[in-house]
């Protein structure tokens, strides 16, 4: 399990790293994404920027898809097609978590949902659905 988490951490893109996102183990079969609060994530004073919440959800969705694809992952390029985010609560200046769930990963399309929360998982900040195009590499 730790090896799997480390391999997935390697896949975090530069944007995720510069925002301080990290993989904090597995939860319900998907990599759990965590991000400490920092000024670089602030929108209106005292709250997380909506774009940061969306960015965190996207990375959680992408990481869930990498995990789901398993050995196939190295041969497939994942292209985000679209995202729809619903904002449920303001995010305050504390650690934030996000988790993706692959609803379906077919031959060409993957449908993924993700949710973000802070201290209490039952009180999500935001949720999203995303569609991805899966293309063989090369």
């Amino acid at each position: 399990m730790i090896a799997a988490t480390n391999a997935l951490s390697e896949r975090l893109p530069p944007y995720a790293r510069s925002m301080g996102m990290r993989i904090d183990g597995m939860l319900d079969g998907s990599p759990l994404l965590a991000m400490d609060f920092a000024d670089r994530a602030m929108g209106r004073p005292g709250f997380l920027h909506g774009g940061v919440i969306a960015g965190l959800l996207e990375i959680a969705a992408i990481m869930a898809l990498h995990a789901e694809l398993g050995e196939e992952d190295a041969r497939i390029r994942i292209k985000p097609v679209n995202i729809s985010v619903e904002y449920l609560r303001g995010g305050i200046t504390v650690e934030t978590f996000a988790l993706g769930e692959v609803i379906r990963a077919g031959r060409r399309i993957a449908n993924v949902r993700a949710e973000a929360w802070q201290a209490d998982r039952t009180k999500p900040l935001a949720s999203c659905w995303m569609n991805f195009l899966l293309k063989p590499k090369g």
């Binding site: 944007y15 995720a16 925002m19 909506g50 774009g51 940061v52 969306a54 960015g55």
Partner: peptide
């Protein structure tokens, strides 16, 4: 290619 997160932030603002 730029991540989509910063593009959403830009569109949000």
């Amino acid at each position: 290619v730029l991540a989509s997160g910063p593009i959403i932030s830009l569109l949000d603002n």
